[in-house]
């Protein structure tokens, strides 16, 4: 990828879409799970699980698709642990989610060391072996459109899948009985039970779906976007997803807008980082006297600011974060 061949705007827009893809993908899962009444703070850990699973399997077998499949399954497996504690066990969702993050951090670090030992040397380059990762998939003639071509039709295959999934989930939530049940699970599980809907089973499914989405988002980070793994490589993106679901007021459109906005901040930040070491984009040089950490901080400050401006009186799922059945007296 050589930024010199594109103009600045196209390059930034393309990077924005690329940076927003994992956020949207994980966000769809989190949205579904939150609509069902389960808030999953562990989404960061699930993404990290996806990263390491995809990286090691793709690196060991040389097949990117195996890596992606493993990442989805691994995300679902860890999410099953979360569902077992919070839905079946009725434990606190925030605490279990935090434990999940710790677990993923430890597991990914351990597996990463074991993988390096298995490869035989410690100063192994973190890049995937050639051909094991995905490369961009251009959609025929559409990819040659000015601006829209490189931005929307020359992305990794998971981007197209994400767009399809977003449209599908939006339609399901909006128009089908299944979507109605999903929203009712979060707003009034009691009514669901009265209608003969198995609240816990449905919540289990929603959480497993969220785990699969987050795992795939992690795979996007490690075997598509960077072709590398680093300890803690998600770097808080899962937490940003949590904030974005609230920011989007639990709607698909709002979520995607938010993700694109944060993708834009992120890509600007990364472009500035590289512009510091190369001579591209003279327009950005004026910004270089600002400490680099300010740009790294920007997504989190923006997330906080967005929450502070918008979170008043938002309509959230009524019973978000509550176990089912709700009350037991001790």
């Amino acid at each position: 990828m050589n930024p010199a061949h594109e103009n600045l705007l196209t390059f930034l827009a393309r990077q924005t879409v690329s940076a927003a893809t994992p956020l949207i993908l994980a966000g769809i899962g989190e949205l579904v799970s939150e609509l069902a009444g389960v808030i999953d703070i562990g989404i960061e850990g699930l993404m990290l699980t996806g990263c390491i699973a995809a990286y090691t399997i793709a690196g060991a077998t040389g097949h990117g698709s195996l890596g992606l499949a493993t990442a989805i399954l691994a995300g679902m497996a860890v999410a099953a642990l979360f569902a077992a504690t919070t839905i079946s066990g009725r434990a606190d969702q925030i605490v279990s989610g935090t434990a999940l993050n710790l677990l993923a951090l430890g597991l990914s670090g351990t597996i990463w060391s074991l993988y390096q030992n298995w490869r035989g040397n410690h100063d192994l380059s973190t890049a995937l072996p050639h051909g094991a990762g995905y490369s961009r998939l251009a959609v025929g003639a559409l990819a040659r459109l000015p601006f829209f071509g490189p931005v929307f039709f020359d992305q990794y295959s998971l981007f197209y899948a994400t767009v399809l999934l977003a449209a599908m989930v939006w339609g399901i939530i909006r128009f089908t009985r299944m979507g109605l049940i999903l929203r009712a699970l979060g707003d009034s599980p009691q009514a669901c039970q009265a209608c003969g809907i198995a609240v816990r089973t449905w919540r289990w499914l929603a959480v497993l779906f969220a785990g699969g989405c987050a795992g795939a988002a992690g795979a996007y980070l490690s075997i598509m976007r960077t072709h590398a793994f680093a300890t803690d490589m998600t770097g808080g993106q899962g937490f940003v997803v949590l904030a974005l679901v609230i920011f989007g007021r639990w709607s698909m459109g709002g979520l995607i807008l938010g993700c694109l906005f944060f993708g834009a901040i992120n890509s600007l930040q990364q472009t500035l980082q590289t512009a510091r070491y190369t001579s591209h984009y003279a327009a950005l040089h004026a910004l270089q006297s600002v400490p680099f950490e300010v740009f790294q901080m920007l997504p989190y400050v923006a997330a906080l600011a967005a929450l502070a401006v918008l979170s008043r009186n938002h309509p959230g799922p009524h019973r978000l974060g509550r176990p089912w059945p709700e009350e037991i007296s001790l």
Binding site: L81, A84, T85, S88, G89, R90, A91, D92, V95, S96, T98, A99, L100, L102, L103, L105, G106, L107, S108, G109, T110, W112, S113, L114, T231, I328, L330
Partner: peptide
Amino acid sequence: PHAVVNVVKAVVILLMLLLSAYLLG
């Protein structure tokens, strides 16, 4: 690898939540 310690900590929390959930359940 030192990261194993984090796994132990997380397993402790999750088991704790599961066990108390089971006992209270």
